[in-house]
């Protein structure tokens, strides 16, 4: 019987959704062998209050590390603490999110423990000791199944690939000290830059409205933003060409070299569907495409296509979505 350790990511004193995803995946692995899930929660004093939420998603034990210097995430302190705990607890697996923080953290923990890891995991099966996972490869054009034979198995999970499940467990809080003095961390966060306030991030948003060159001019992106506002829960993305032209910030770019997203609904506006773009969004659950060129490759992957000029179709769609939302 092996327990599973899950890293519960937080930012600014709040749990991130990916923390619950990690606990949920850890629960599935632990249940395969009747083990426990231990969640590691780190932050400034007061973060312990979030332990209960982890308990409701399947954590038997929440290991809380509080320290004033942890108001900002420190991968160095987190890696040292997670690795020390993993060693002591003889876990069968340690689960992270493949978020920006998790991608930075998980490989360091693996290296400290002297084991390989699987990154950006889409699904998993098996039990600690012989875990098989799927993971995207080759610009997301293939899915690879990896088998990890080392113990613990270190995994980072694609954000959004695991849906948090409500499983109430004890969520017993245990207090831990950081494994290194946070003041001695060498990489120091000097400043946190907030994105556009109130808008969901591309990785979290259930709906993404994304625009391409078919919008013809930077100012027409207003239409995309208005449609996103009409949905209410939507983030705005864009193609590489548009980011290269400076119409939108690079951070909004979806594709092979930008962000990879899996929302419930992806609305592609004026996007032709170059391979490089499809690599970033083809795993969306539902895809809508609006494009003037009926031969555009985007229509081959779209569940619903409208052939037409984005400047004409999008305002109509915005109005209709707004109406539908009010009808609810």
């Amino acid at each position: 019987m092996a327990n599973v350790l899950a890293f519960a990511e937080s930012r600014g004193g709040e749990l991130r959704k990916v923390a619950l995803e990690a606990v949920t995946a850890a629960r599935a692995l632990a249940d395969a062998e009747g083990g426990e899930v231990h969640a590691l929660l780190m932050g400034a004093p007061g973060i312990a209050a979030k332990a209960e939420q982890l308990g409701r998603h399947g954590a038997d034990v929440v290991l809380v590390v509080e320290h004033p210097a942890l108001a900002n995430h420190s991968a160095e302190v987190a890696a040292a603490t997670a690795a020390a705990r993993a060693r002591e607890g003889a876990y069968g697996a340690v689960v992270f999110s493949a978020s920006a923080q998790g991608k930075d953290l998980a490989p360091r923990v693996a290296a400290k423990l002297g084991v390989p890891m699987a990154a950006d995991v889409l699904s998993l099966e098996g039990a600690p000791g012989s875990v098989s996972v799927t993971h995207p490869g080759y610009a997301s054009k293939v899915t690879r199944t990896l088998t990890l034979s080392a113990k613990p198995a270190i995994l980072s999970l694609r954000p959004g690939a695991f849906t948090p499940a409500a499983v109430t467990k004890a969520g017993r809080v245990e207090t831990l000290a950081p494994a290194m003095d946070p003041a001695s961390a060498r990489v120091v966060v000097k400043e946190m830059v907030q994105g556009r306030s109130g808008k969901p991030d591309l990785g979290d948003a259930p709906v993404i409205v994304s625009g391409g060159r078919g919008l013809r001019a930077a100012e027409n992106f207003r239409l995309v933003e208005e449609l996103a506002d009409a949905f209410g829960n939507a983030a705005v993305g864009c193609t590489r060409a548009v980011a290269d032209d400076g119409w939108r910030p690079q951070s909004d770019q979806i594709g092979q070299t930008g962000r990879t997203v899996s929302p419930d609904l992806y609305v592609a506006v004026g996007i032709s569907g170059a391979i490089q773009h499809l690599a970033g969004m083809r795993t969306a659950k539902t895809i809508v495409a609006i494009n003037r060129d009926k031969e555009a490759p985007i229509f081959k992957v779209a569940d619903y296509g409208i052939v037409g000029d984005a400047l004409e179709v999008v305002p109509a769609l915005t109005a209709a979505v707004r109406e539908a939302k009010q009808g609810h």
């Binding site: 009926k294 779209a302 296509g305 409208i306």
Partner: peptide, 14 residues
């Protein structure tokens, strides 16, 4: 993906 379903043309398809 089983895509490729065009539901119509222009704003009339909204």
């Amino acid at each position: 993906r089983q895509g490729g379903r065009i539901i119509g043309e222009g704003a009339a398809a909204v």
